[in-house]
Design a protein around this nucleic acid. Structure first.
Lengths: 370, 370
DNA sequence: ATACTTCTTGAATCTTAGA
DNA sequence: CTCTAAGATTCAAGAAGTA
């Protein structure tokens, strides 16, 4: 039991371990609303001609022994809905899920997600820089896979580290299409015979981006189709806790050995750009109280509007009195206005946004905090 | 009656006309197994609430038309299954369908296609070179739409002009992700008020690629959600016959006028729509995601300055955090700095500029036919 | 005419803390 | 739960305007 469990009285979570067994059974045995993020790489259902098989090659029992395509899709749908429902139970209210798939299964997964009450936030295309070509020239090179990112429900306050992703993309907001290479070379895990240990090992770079985008340091990440444990390895690197579920012993062994060798990045490396909303709120009145602006002083806007500062931190414009935001919005005839960037004051012939003064106060607050 | 109808004795098809009415009713009135290809751009069921404003307070012109409103997913599914069934009846045995959509609807469409007996050949991603950004920083830029290409049934001998597509792609096999710009500028049709005639007009270049890939000269192409008739215009340019179905008179009028002006095999408009080829931008963050540089690792400059790499692709230097360019500029007291040549890392006792790693990634992308 | 800047716009499920 | 007010938030193209 962790310290936090003792404090909250929550049921113990088996953090940073691989649980053996069928993912639906195992998920049902875990405490509800305990997980921040689920990353799932379920079977793709590639072999529709024959049986539906799980990653461990076990056959999913069909309702009807007579093979029939509709029955196979129905079977896959039942499996999908079952694990998605069990997964949703585990998610905290503001938790989210990522599921990856190809055209063989992703449409059924997406529809099931919506039907189970998840709320899709984006579909993200992993565009492979080195896909397998189509050898027979009968179709387009299948050069991408699709991930669906969904919150537990509509209106949930899911985690999205917008600033961190923007940084990863050198200052431009991250798009829904990601160009990343396949998992090959030294990264590709081999078994004792030198064969690839798992047929569909996902690249570290993919999980890195997912976890940086959608989790905080210390969050709990669950992967119900753990395979060789890319999710766990990246979670550990990034200082997140993880739980893996995997039926097949040979995959669990490979994953365990692999994760044991992972070093966690240090604290400095894990800090990312703070979103502005996380900065402490500074009332405009403080600038007046501190004498950074004088009551009676005139503020101007880029569009040439002006207003005067009052001692209580309100502004007086033409026919309007109120907060810096309200007066800015009224003067522009706009529904809203960020007064901090809208209003400017004059010092030494320069016109400076008042946000500069807020930044000074915030810097002082940070220094005082140290 | 066309010459071909007389030869085959087939029921007359209203070729190269726009049929007024609900697409399900109209399709049911047409002869079975008479169409080679269907391209469908059905309503996406966007479920938009309220309005959305850009940071400059201008309002985004949303798709709020009645034709995109459905009561529920079940309602949308019923509509989808009905039109897909009617469409399938019209297809020749070796015919195929393309359906375009976004994450709002495409998963339901894909599942319905499979349930109705279509056989998915590829999902093709239209990567928009100039998508609308996410204004609130709450999600990834929704930068793509998805098309599903499916044959009428498994084992059908569908048309795929492999060599033509390879030529279109400068000799490299065409991939399942296509980079094309939105339909804007002179190509975007305007109504009598100068407003866009249709909220979701698709680009000519997109249909050009679809029809070159999946039809022969003389084939019959049907579009049950004709709108302003991009499918008809491109079909005519390419010497294919077309049939459009559209409920709204205002769209039919625009489409008719537009198609009347198209000359067969007039590719002038197409040539200009070719995507530009430029050296791809590689964000520094990708080196971190890919494990080429490790978070926490120290970079050095020729002048002896140093900084540490963080997991989000930013650097931490003395008193400064930011992109490789920003931190370099700050440490040098310079207005700007090319971080790619400024920063170096150590490998095997050597000091190497990070630009080497960028060149590696670009080489991979070139190999992939980016 | 040319170069440069500013404006407009695109299938969008687009806020949140605090009372 | 609802309501209010603070205040955070955009990329690429092409068109249109300006020097």
């Amino acid at each position: 039991m962790t310290k936090m469990d003792q404090i909250t009285g929550a049921q113990a979570l088996p953090l940073n371990t691989i649980l053996a067994g069928d993912c639906i059974d195992v998920m049902q045995s875990l405490p509800a609303e305990s997980v921040d993020l689920i990353f799932a790489d379920p079977p793709y259902n590639l072999q529709l001609r024959g049986d539906l098989r799980r990653p461990d090659n076990s056959r999913v029992d069909a309702v009807d022994d007579d093979w029939d395509r509709f029955q196979s899709f129905a079977d896959y749908d039942r499996f999908t809905r079952d694990w998605l429902r069990a997964a949703r139970r585990l998610l905290k209210p503001d938790g989210a899920i990522w599921v990856i798939g190809s055209y063989h299964n992703i449409f059924r997964v997406g529809a099931a997600l919506q039907d189970e009450g998840y709320w899709i936030l984006n579909d993200v295309v992993w565009r492979k820089s080195n896909p397998m070509p189509n050898f027979r020239g009968k179709r387009f090179t299948n050069a991408h896979e699709t991930m669906i990112w969904a919150s537990k429900s509509e209106g949930a306050r899911y985690t999205f580290n917008y600033e961190a992703l923007k940084s990863l993309n050198e200052g431009i907001q991250m798009r829904s299409d990601w160009v990343l290479p396949l998992c090959t070379g030294a990264e590709r895990l081999k078994d004792e015979n030198g064969e690839k240990a798992h047929p569909t090992q996902k690249p570290v770079a993919l999980l890195h981006r997912v976890l940086v985008a959608a989790t905080q340091v210390g969050d709990v990440v669950l992967d119900p189709f753990f395979g060789t444990g890319t999710t766990g390895a990246v979670a550990r690197m990034l200082g997140r806790d993880w739980i893996g579920i995997e039926r097949e012993e040979r995959y669990r062994k490979v994953a365990e050995a692999r994760i044991a060798e992972v070093r966690k990045f240090d604290k400095v490396a894990l800090e990312t750009a703070r979103p502005k909303r996380a900065e402490p709120r500074v009332p405009f009145g403080q600038l007046v109280e501190r004498g950074m602006l004088r009551p009676g002083e005139t503020l101007v806007s880029p569009s040439g509007k002006s207003a005067r500062v009052r001692a209580d931190g309100t502004l007086v414009g033409l026919d309007i009195t109120g907060s810096i935001h309200q007066v800015g919005a009224a003067l522009e005839g706009a529904p809203s206005c960020n007064g901090w960037t809208y209003w400017h004051f004059k010092r030494d012939g320069q016109i400076v946004p008042i946000d500069i003064l807020r930044q000074q106060i915030r810097a002082e607050m940070r220094d005082a905090g140290h």
